[in-house]
Nucleic acid binder design. Sequence first.
DNA 1: GCCGGGCATTGATCCCGATCAAACCGCCCG
DNA 2: CGGGCGGTTTGATCGGGATCAATGCCCGGC
Lengths: 247, 247
Amino acid sequence: MARSCDECGVRDRALCASLGDDELVTLGRLGVQRRLARGDTLIRAGDPPLVCANLQSGVMKIATLTPAGTESIVGLLYPGDFIGRPFATANEHDVIALTDVELCVFPRAMFERVLADHQRMEHLLLQRTLAELDRARRWLTRMGRATAAARVAGFLDDMGRRLAMPDCQRSALAGPDSQRSGGVARSMAYDLPLSRGEIADLLGLTIETVSRQMTRLRAAGIIGLPGGRGIVINDPSALAAAAEEYV
Amino acid sequence: MARSCDECGVRDRALCASLGDDELVTLGRLGVQRRLARGDTLIRAGDPPLVCANLQSGVMKIATLTPAGTESIVGLLYPGDFIGRPFATANEHDVIALTDVELCVFPRAMFERVLADHQRMEHLLLQRTLAELDRARRWLTRMGRATAAARVAGFLDDMGRRLAMPDCQRSALAGPDSQRSGGVARSMAYDLPLSRGEIADLLGLTIETVSRQMTRLRAAGIIGLPGGRGIVINDPSALAAAAEEYV
DNA sequence: GCCGGGCATTGATCCCGATCAAACCGCCCG
DNA sequence: CGGGCGGTTTGATCGGGATCAATGCCCGGC
C-alpha cells in the first residue's frame, strides 16, 4: 500500500493527475488509505454520501437491489476511477468490492471544497462523467436489444479490453499474457473479477444462461475456460462480432 | 420564439441560470435561435460534435442505431435540458426532435470556452451530468430486470411526473390538467410525445407488446386512452406500484 | 362521400431465456 | 480418505414477449 501520493500507482491516471506536486501534498493529507476485502461495502444506497474515493487497485461494482430482491449491477469501477456522488443528498447505488481493493478515501464535503478550489480537477471530473454517461448509454442499448449471446460476448470483450489497459497490470488479478499490437487484436488470458452470478446480475440474465452462452463460445473455439474464473480469448475479432448480434 | 434571453422561457432553468444578467448578454450574442420540426436531426452519431444547445421547448430523443438496424432510445430531453457532448471527438448518439422544438444553439468550441470562463456554469453542468448518470443507471436496472408491464407502467409514470413539472406547461404539448397536491398524487392527463414505436424503442420491447400492456392498464382502470397519443392517469399510485414488478 | 396510407390494436403461434432440477467440481476440513 | 459446501455446468420444461398476420381507426385528399 502506497504511503504517499508519489508511490500511488494511479497518481497520473486518477483525478489527482490534474494537480501539481505541491497541491498533491495538501490533498494527500486529506485522504486516508483504506483496504477493503472482496464483498465489503464502501457506499450503501440510501445513505447520505459521506465519502468520495479514488480506486487504486482491484475492481468494484455499482449496484442496486431491485424491488424483487435481486441485485442489478449498473457499472464497474477499475483502478484510477473516481468513486462517489458529490453534491447529492443520498447515494443512489451501492458500491461494493468485487476483489480485494485499495482506496484513497476523502470526506465528501472536503472533496467538494477541493473541487471548488481546483478548477482543473472539476474540469477533469466533468469530462470523465460525460464519458461515463456515454458508456452507460451504450450499455443501455445492449440491455435493451442484444441477445443473451451478444451480451455475454460483449461483456467478455469489454472486460478483456479493460484489463489489457496499463493500470490493471499491477492489480490483484492475473495480468493479460499478451497484448494488442499494431491494431490487430491478439489472444489474451485473464481472470474474471466477477462470479457467474454477478455476471448474470450485470447482464440482466440468469446464471444458467450465462454459463450456457460461455460454453457455446468455448465450443465455437472463440474462448477457452481453463477453470475457475479464468478466461482465454482465442479469437478476439470473432468475439467482437458475436457481441453485435442484436435483435 | 424568444428574441432575447430575457424572454427565454427556460432562462432560470437552463445552464444559463448560473450567469448574471450582464454575462447573459454576452452569451446571448453567441447563441442562435433555431426551430426544428418533429423528426429533424440536430446531432448525428459519428459526426464530430459541432454544436451544443439548450432546449427551450418541446421534447427530443437521444438514440442509436443498433447493428441490426433497429433504433434504441437511450434518453429523452425536456425544456431546460442541455444538449451536446463537449470535449468529445465524436458524437456517440443521435439527437432528434420528437415534437417541434425550439433551441438555443452554440458552436461547441465557443461553448467550451464559455465553460472555462464561467466556473459556476461548469459546476452546474457537472451536477446535472452526475444526476443524469444516476438517472441512466436507474433506467439500466429497469432494462435489465423489469417485466414488460413494469417498463410500460414506469415509463407512463415517469413521463407524467416530468410533464407535470413547470417548464413543460408552456410547451407544444397539452399541459397536465391537474397536479399533485400536498404529496398526494392526483389524476392527470397529457399527450405522449412519442409514438408506440418510439416507446418500444425506448423500452426495448416491440410495438405489439407496448400496445398490449397499455390496454391491460386501461382494462385495470389505472389509465385511460382517449385516443391518439392521449393518456389519462386515473390511479397514479397503482401505476407506480405496477412499475415495481421486477423479476 | 369514398378511398388510401399511417399508426394502433388484436389474435395465433413460435422461440429464447427463465425456471426447476440434478449432477459435477474443486476445495477446505475433519 | 471421505464428506460437505459453494459455485458451475448440464438437462428438461415452461412461459413471456417476439413474430407473423389480420383488422381497426383516424385523418387528409379528392
